[in-house]
Design a protein around this nucleic acid. Sequence first.
DNA 1: CGCGCCATTGATTGCTTTCAACGATTGTGG
DNA 2: CCACAATCGTTGAAAGCAATCAATGGCGCG
Lengths: 274, 274
Amino acid sequence: MSAHRTGDGHHNPFLMRLRRSGTIGEAELDVLGDLLEGRRPVNAHTDLLAQGARTAQLHVLLDGWACQYKLLADGERQITTLLLPGDVCNLDGLYVDHVNAAVGTLSPCTVATLDCVTLRILARRHPGVGRALGWLGAVENATLAERTISLGRRSGRGRIAHLLCELFVRLAVTGDTGENGYTLPLIQADVGDVLGLSTVHTNRVLQGLRHEGLIVLKGREFHIPDWPRLCEVAEFRPDYLHLGEMDGLDGARSSAFGASPAVARPASPGLAGG
Amino acid sequence: MSAHRTGDGHHNPFLMRLRRSGTIGEAELDVLGDLLEGRRPVNAHTDLLAQGARTAQLHVLLDGWACQYKLLADGERQITTLLLPGDVCNLDGLYVDHVNAAVGTLSPCTVATLDCVTLRILARRHPGVGRALGWLGAVENATLAERTISLGRRSGRGRIAHLLCELFVRLAVTGDTGENGYTLPLIQADVGDVLGLSTVHTNRVLQGLRHEGLIVLKGREFHIPDWPRLCEVAEFRPDYLHLGEMDGLDGARSSAFGASPAVARPASPGLAGG
DNA sequence: CGCGCCATTGATTGCTTTCAACGATTGTGG
DNA sequence: CCACAATCGTTGAAAGCAATCAATGGCGCG
């Protein structure tokens, strides 16, 4: 009986995410959850960790969106990792003493910390814990690699479409999605800084996708009318997120095109046949 | 006394690299070295692992250069990770059953394998082993993040300069560098596929750097006349590679600009002062 | 000697950036 | 209730970096 999803103040996206590793037991998850300390709210646009900072704790994002980023000499910002509810802000902190990128919030957040020493001890007693953390790192790595592919070889349109797909799947793990969409707290400048695009171009690409009917974006509310079609445009294949068969979300099964949560409610007719 | 650098057929770049984690003992390194099996030569331009392949072993590159890559629908290739002597081709294999990118050689290589199950058992007995592997993953992650920054916000010139700097430092760890340079087995198309540039543009940028006197590249032999200046152009700071103080290379100390191995022999006068 | 691979070069096209301005929205204080 | 500032989204025009297309030269090898 997992309680990590109940509403009794025990909703823990971090544990929900870890469970997806498939190599950690409920008992181990509970112990891990008890190790979370110093739960606190953080304002939007606030640095949790400065670049090169030293820390002996893992910072876990329990709510809100954050990012890892670096500033270049000319003042430009590049976001290297988008952090969603349940993500660890500095997973490398387990193995390296200085974080190499700054971590900042993009929306109001709730964070907690996990002591590295304690965690290492726990991992020795419970191999499943260490393995789940390793899995987390592997997924982070794969996500970064996929971003590299976007920045290296995809057009602005492809990059944005791909990011929007990825976010849907990642958010779905912790139940932070709606019907066929989610709340996107990012401003267009943030999206540009993730994908290596200018704000202006980001704006134009988003409008293009809107006019094509591929996305619906009003204010912060984002919807995907036709998931398979957006995936096709994005060349999005969720394999790299290693989420298994994507069951346990809405009971959605894998689709012909690729494991897809939204496919549970094919909202629009005329799905693009492969 | 570490024997991993002697010439008695015991040169093992994998162990040399692991040692840099600073959290693994010589005894543990020896045990780990004994676990390497099936050492074999592999031709250039050969896939070691197909995309989505399943494997229960870590593939360790003992000599030569390889890469992780994906092919896009339009036939374009994006290399996500460059693998140098001593690197693990599929580190994520420890935590995930299907690799998400293909692994292919770029030059003639020597590879060996490490059984994941055996490795996990070893790691339980020797925490230093697990930690060193985690460190390896953290560095890989940071490298990927730095690449993201290049692709997202740096010009072609900056990207290539940065890559050339990174390769020098990474190669220096295993002693695969010469005076102030190294052998670059990549063809220009490979470099372009790493950095998201076309072959033609890669060529022009390289020529530009040559004409500026920033690099010397004749055939496969690459030299850096003025390391600090190239670092400056690249905005290269080796922090993210987490190699400590870069001692033990040529006895070089950290320079004012950043830890730099080549600075041991400041080959050219008139270093660009910050 | 001819083929194949690779580096190089020129010309053209175009996606994206940059610059600049304006409209929309929100929150605040008078 | 309205003025006002600040943030964010949108639009137009111009400039630029890099891609694409096409072709040539160099070099190693069978």
